[in-house]
């Protein structure tokens, strides 16, 4: 058994919140720079140029890349040989979010109830997904999610007979509907299979995959490439004002499913696809 103080998790989450909202990861930065080189529309290129400049200002002057610093989504993979000490782990994670969003001058965007809508004032609670894994390490992935793009996400409960064509149509429909609202160029996380909730969770986790890394399943990799090409052919372009760069990546995760179903979840993210991982 390895003991890990809850405070260690709090401190890690606090630092991760601040870093991820000011500095885009190298993989996403490379994607955006590459998009700037490839874009042929004048307006599109101008916008991508502004986005590049924005990244520089954000990290240099410590101004969040985007004012929507999101709801904190956290994937916590806990080794089964780990024993947390000194407090409740969920409280520890939320304390990290509270400190990070307060000390980092990040926006508090969470309301305590979806209908009564009173701001909690510290961006808690986070949405935390726990997973027990072998070993004695704790892997924390933080992905603060903005809602301009979250609102454009979709879940389709397809029939097995819809097959891969149905899946393709669903992904394209979601990207098309998202259009200018989701701050393109987008990153698109897709879940195929599982159950209703497993499928959505896979789509979310797919967004945390390093850009440029493909699925190791042959047909899924081909689907990722084909969908990226097709979405870029829609012509939506940067900021939705036309151009060839509408998406930066399409990441697809799959899971076994029921004989009667073919769930597909499409989680849309903007170009500020924030994700950071730390091992404790």
């Amino acid at each position: 058994m390895r003991t890990v103080p809850a405070e260690t998790i709090t401190e890690a989450v606090e630092a991760m919140c601040i870093k991820v909202c000011h500095e885009l990861s190298d993989d996403m930065k490379a994607c955006l720079y590459d998009a700037y080189e490839k874009e042929t529309s004048d307006t599109g290129k101008k916008i991508l140029g502004q986005l590049k400049e924005n990244l520089g200002i954000a990290s240099k002057e410590m101004i969040p890349i985007c004012q929507d610093t999101g709801m904190a989504v956290i994937f916590l993979k806990v080794g089964q040989e780990v024993c947390f000490t000194g407090g409740d782990i969920t409280d520890a994670v939320n304390e990290g979010v509270r400190r990070g969003y307060t000390k980092g001058y990040l926006r508090k965007s969470v309301v305590s109830d979806p209908i009564q809508r009173v701001n909690t004032g510290d961006n808690t609670p986070a949405v935390i997904h726990y997973e027990i894994v072998p070993g004695d390490k704790v892997m924390i992935t933080l992905a603060p999610k903005g809602f301009g793009s979250e609102n454009m996400s979709r879940l389709f409960m397809l029939k097995p007979s819809d097959g891969i064509e149905g899946v393709k149509n669903a992904i394209i429909a979601a990207a098309k509907d998202a259009g200018p609202n989701a701050c393109p160029p987008m990153v698109i996380g897709v879940g195929i299979g599982g159950t209703f909730e497993k499928c959505a969770l896979m789509a979310k986790e797919a967004l945390t995959r390093e850009a440029g890394v493909h699925s190791d399943i042959g047909y899924v990799r081909e689907l990722e490439e084909e969908m990226l090409t097709k979405i870029n052919e829609l012509g939506i372009g940067p900021a939705g004002l036309g151009g060839k760069i509408t998406a930066l990546a399409v990441n697809i995760n799959t899971y076994p499913t029921h004989i009667a179903g073919l769930p597909v979840a499409v989680n849309i993210c903007c170009h500020v696809n924030r994700h950071i991982t730390r091992e404790i």
């Binding site: 986005l51 200002i57 954000a58 101004i63 890349i65 985007c66 301009g148 701050c183 939705g240 500020v272």
Partner: peptide
């Protein structure tokens, strides 16, 4: 008018 989404640091200037 549309301002560029996700360029909040730049626009704050």
């Amino acid at each position: 008018f549309a301002a560029v989404g996700g360029a909040g640091a730049l626009l704050s200037r």
